[in-house]
């Protein structure tokens, strides 16, 4: 039945092929350009470290709006590919057969429904994994430069658009489209539910409420003072979850000046008066930042930051991919039940 499946789905292959070609045409040249520009700047900075650009975190590169747009647009694009596949390939896959009655035709040929479904799902899922795998590989390669410059591949859309996750998303989106198609027997309904579920899960719930808890975050505590807490977070693409100032009662402080204890309020006022009078700056306390920080430290204030360290990046990729693959397996199982156990 391979010819038949190819005939039914060749248009999808063609469209995805064209998308892939367009994507490659965009990703390869820009990726090479970014990488070369970056290497060039590194060499230049090695020769002339005094250049003010070299002290900038991004070496003063890629500040144009086009570059910034590309840096953000391409990762977002790949994030939407799974849902596009889910809506335009997954949802109609079975729904259209039900809607046009062709399921009655194909299920009464001399091939069992089970085999028909198995071959169809295998084809579609393997093709999805391969196609999106290529997209994801391209994106991961392309992201090398922005990752290095921004050090944020652990964050938001940059996390979701690289590594193995796009493949897991796509498998989930396509199988849930297929399942809802078999369930509701209507393409539009299936597509709508698939879209809603994917947005709710992959774009809202998981990144905000689930992902931070895959592993217990690392917590660092520091005294009050500029950069005191940042200096305790190791360098690299960490995922910073929170950074707060805690008062003597263990509560998170929103506004330092209004909630500071009485003895520190004086210093604050003094500083404010001092600065408004002009020139009469608050005296620095040796070893403890300025006098406000010293006062706050004395009062029992401190800073707390929680983060997922950069070395957990692949663990997080694996855990999240595992979740979506488990959901994929569930959707496939439900599809089998719907197709085999339910009346046509």
């Amino acid at each position: 039945m391979n010819w038949f499946l190819w005939r039914q789905h060749r248009k999808n292959f063609l469209v995805i092929g064209i998308l892939l070609a367009l994507y490659t045409a965009l990703v390869i040249p820009t990726g090479l350009h970014f990488w070369h520009t970056y290497q060039h700047a590194l060499t230049a900075c090695a020769q002339n470290p005094a250049d003010p650009n070299c002290s900038e975190p991004q070496l003063g590169l890629f500040q144009s709006s086009t570059d910034q747009l590309l840096f953000h647009l391409l990762p977002v694009t790949i994030l939407f590919l799974p849902i596009v596949l889910g809506i335009f390939w997954g949802a109609p896959l079975l729904a259209r057969e039900y809607a046009e009655g062709t399921n009655g035709l194909v299920w009464t040929q001399g091939t069992s429904r089970h085999k028909w479904l198995t071959v169809k799902l295998t084809w579609v899922l393997v093709a999805t994994a391969v196609f999106i795998g290529v997209f994801a590989a391209l994106m991961t390669w392309w992201s090398n430069t922005p990752n290095t410059l921004n050090m944020d591949r652990f964050n938001d859309v940059f996390f979701s658009s690289q590594g193995i996750l796009p493949v897991a998303y796509a498998l989930f989106a396509v199988t849930s489209g297929i399942m809802f198609g078999a369930w509701f027997k209507k393409t539009m309904v299936a597509a709508g539910v698939t879209l809603g579920l994917f947005i709710a899960l992959a774009l809202i719930a998981v990144p905000n409420f689930v992902r931070p808890h895959y592993m217990a975050p690392v917590t660092v505590v520091a005294q009050m003072g500029p950069a005191a807490v940042d200096s305790k977070i190791p360098e690299g693409a960490n995922w910073l979850l929170s950074r707060n100032i805690i008062n003597q009662n263990g509560e998170v402080v929103q506004d330092i000046f209004s909630s500071a204890p009485a003895q520190c309020q004086k210093i604050i006022q003094q500083m404010q008066i001092g600065t408004s009078a002009g020139g009469n700056r608050v005296k620095a306390v040796p070893g403890g930042g300025d006098s406000i920080d010293a006062c706050l430290n004395k009062a029992g204030w401190h800073q707390i930051a929680t983060f997922q360290p950069s070395y957990r990046y692949w663990d997080f990729q694996r855990i999240e991919a595992g979740i979506y693959l488990a959901l994929t397996v569930l959707a496939v199982g439900a599809t089998y039940l719907l197709v085999l156990r339910r009346d046509a």
Binding site: F4, Q109, G110
Partner: peptide, 10 residues
Amino acid sequence: KMGVNLNKRF
């Protein structure tokens, strides 16, 4: 062709 594909005897 579909008939050939989906049936042992066709």
